[in-house]
């Protein structure tokens, strides 16, 4: 059975670290792991590793394939594959993204941007309802990183997400890195986002590294998940923890995968920020 651990920190489970986590479970630094369920469909070697790791850590599913923001309905086949894996592994949580990937005959391997219109909100809510119905549980939706916005936008991203929560009863996965990326790319203060988002609906936080890319003298932040968490992301996370209660928090790293020790050090850094914010909160409350 998974061991009890007071930390809210978790780790995105990736193939290069399977054996190390099985042989020496890092219970001091993390209390849960998160997977992309699409990598475990079918019951092969990845699934066998996951079954072993499940013995030591509760598992969260972070989907990348529902395409919740698509104009078309969610794939019934994909939902069914998720349901089978959920029944096998029994994750404590399921999340996917407020974005789209599927259009017509193609599923593009990316989290593509939504136009924040009433029509797209209707479609997103319809697809969240479908997913929650088939999976038989509340799901979380994650705020995106984007590199363009549409002239047809009718509301802010946080208003769009808050409305989706209100209409469907879903929860939020708040990616702090994505907020920083959005703030830089689209010109707003990340703290404004945190002040406006319905934080009571946030059940998980992601922290990750972006990569600055210069195009014609203008720097855009690209959500690469391939570097350590940047200082402005840590600062935004510190702001969030100073204003809200901590929730499960994950270090997410997908490219240029480092040694497990580096990931665990990032977890420890986040944990220290949470602990300090809680101590400060207790002091303020006592005063």
């Amino acid at each position: 059975m998974p061991q009890a651990n007071k930390t809210v920190m978790g780790l995105g489970l990736r193939h290069p670290h399977y054996r190390q986590i099985i042989e020496c479970p890092p219970h001091e630094q993390i209390s849960w792991v998160e997977i992309h369920p699409e990598n475990y469909f079918g019951g092969g070697i990845n699934f066998k590793f996951l079954e072993k790791i499940r013995e030591d850590f509760p598992v969260s599913f972070h989907g990348v394939g529902l395409s919740l923001g698509s104009a078309e309905a969610v794939s019934a086949h994909h939902l069914q594959q998720l349901k089978i894996l959920i029944d096998q592994i029994e994750p404590f949580q399921f999340s996917d993204h407020a974005s789209w990937s599927m259009s017509g005959n193609a599923h593009l391997n990316d989290l593509l941007p939504l136009a924040y219109t009433a029509e797209n909100l209707d479609n997103l809510c319809r697809n969240i309802d479908q997913a929650q119905h088939v999976l038989g549980r509340q799901i979380l939706i994650e705020n995106p990183s984007t590199y363009l916005r549409f002239k047809q936008d009718e509301m802010t991203e946080w208003a769009f997400l808050n409305e989706a929560v209100a209409r469907t009863g879903c929860a939020l996965l708040l990616d702090i890195n994505n907020i920083v990326v959005q703030g830089h790319n689209h010109g707003f203060a990340p703290t404004d986002y945190l002040d406006q988002i319905n934080f009571a609906a946030v059940k998980e936080i992601h922290l990750a590294g972006y990569t600055p890319r210069e195009i014609d003298g203008q720097v855009l932040y690209i959500d690469t998940h391939g570097e350590q968490v940047h200082n402005d992301v840590w600062q935004t996370f510190t702001y969030a923890m100073a204003h809200y209660n901590p929730v499960r928090t994950l270090i997410e790293w997908d490219n240029n995968m480092p040694d497990l020790d580096i990931l665990l050090a990032e977890c420890a850094k986040a944990d220290a920020i949470i602990t300090k914010a809680q101590a400060q909160g207790a002091e303020d409350h006592a005063a």
């Binding site: 699409e38 990598n39 469909f41 990348v64 529902l66 794939s75 994909h78 005959n105």
Partner: peptide
């Protein structure tokens, strides 16, 4: 031949 599903495996 773009992918037809989210299961890239």
């Amino acid at each position: 031949h773009p992918p037809q599903s989210a299961n890239l495996n």
